[in-house]
C-alpha cells in the first residue's frame, strides 16, 4: 500500500465483523448494526468496554476477599476435620515439605489473580487517561493476561478433583466449602473483564504508535 499512512479502520470509516471478518462501513456511534453476511453484531469498538471491564474487575476484586478469607476445602480424616483457606493450604503444603507444590499453588491462586488485577487496572487507567505511554508493552501485557486467565482455575480444579476422588466416607473425605465458589467467580470475572477490554483502545489515542505500526506493516510488505 502506498500513500498517506492510515491510522486505523475507524479513520477510514470502516469496521470489520468480529465473527466472519467482513469489512463494512462503520455504523454511527449511536447505532446498533448487524453484519450483513453473518448477522453478528457489529461495532466499531466493543461497547462500554472500559466500563464493563471496570465493573467486572471491581466485582472480581470484591469477591477475592471472601475467596481468600473463607475456607475452600474441608479435609476430614478418621480423627480430625480440617478447614483450609487458600493461604492456609499453601502454608500447610510448605510445612509438610512439598515446597514445590506450595509454590505452584501460591503462584496460581494468589499471585496470578493479584497480578491480573494490577495489570487490568494499569491497562484501564492508562487507556482511560488516553495515555500513549508504553503502548506496545501494554498490549503485550494484555495478551499475557488473556493467556494466563485460564490457568488461574487451578485451585478450583484441585478442589473439584479431590472432592470427586477422595470419598472414603469414614476414613477420608474432602468437602468443598463456599470459598472455592468465590474463588471460581473471581477467576471467571477477571477473564470476562479481560475479554471485555478492547485492546484497540490502547492505540486509539496514540498517533505515534499507529504510525510506527503502519510503517512496520508497510515495510514488512
Amino acid at each position: 500500500m502506498t500513500g498517506a499512512p492510515v491510522r486505523s479502520a475507524r479513520a477510514l470509516g470502516l469496521c470489520g465483523c468480529h465473527v466472519c471478518g467482513l469489512v463494512m462501513r462503520a455504523p454511527g456511534p449511536d447505532q446498533a448494526a448487524v453484519c450483513p453476511r453473518c448477522g453478528a453484531r457489529v461495532h466499531l469498538r466493543k461497547p462500554h468496554s472500559l466500563a464493563s471491564c471496570w465493573a467486572l474487575l471491581l466485582s472480581a476484586m470484591m469477591l477475592y476477599i471472601p475467596a481468600n478469607v473463607l475456607p475452600i476445602m474441608r479435609t476430614g480424616t478418621l480423627f480430625s476435620k480440617e478447614d483450609n483457606t487458600i493461604l492456609s493450604g499453601v502454608v500447610e503444603l510448605y510445612r509438610n515439605g512439598s515446597w514445590d507444590l506450595a509454590v505452584i499453588v501460591f503462584v496460581a491462586s494468589i499471585m496470578v489473580p493479584m497480578l491480573k488485577f494490577l495489570a487490568l487496572i494499569t491497562l484501564l487507567v492508562s487507556t482511560q487517561r488516553g495515555s500513549s505511554w508504553a503502548s506496545t508493552h501494554r498490549a503485550k501485557l494484555y495478551r499475557v493476561v488473556e493467556l494466563v486467565g485460564y490457568w488461574s482455575m487451578l485451585d478450583v480444579f484441585v478442589v473439584t478433583l479431590l472432592v470427586a476422588l477422595v470419598n472414603f466416607q469414614p476414613l477420608a473425605e474432602v468437602e468443598p466449602l463456599p470459598g472455592v465458589v468465590y474463588f471460581g467467580l473471581v477467576v471467571v470475572l477477571t477473564m470476562l473483564a479481560s475479554m471485555s477490554f478492547d485492546p484497540r483502545l490502547i492505540w486509539d489515542n496514540d498517533p505515534s504508535h499507529a504510525d510506527i505500526d503502519m510503517h512496520k506493516g508497510t515495510s514488512d510488505e
Binding site: G13, R25, D30, Q31, A33, C35, P36, A51, A55
Partner: peptide
C-alpha cells in the same frame, strides 16, 4: 465515508441505542 471506500458493504442498522447506562454495572 462511502466516497472514500465505495465497494464496502453497509451494515444493517437496526435501531438506535437507548442504553446509556450499561447493565454490566449490575454485576459489581
Amino acid at each position: 465515508r462511502s466516497g472514500a471506500t465505495p465497494n464496502v458493504p453497509e451494515p444493517e442498522v437496526h435501531r438506535r441505542r437507548r442504553w446509556q447506562f450499561s447493565l454490566i454495572w449490575l454485576v459489581p
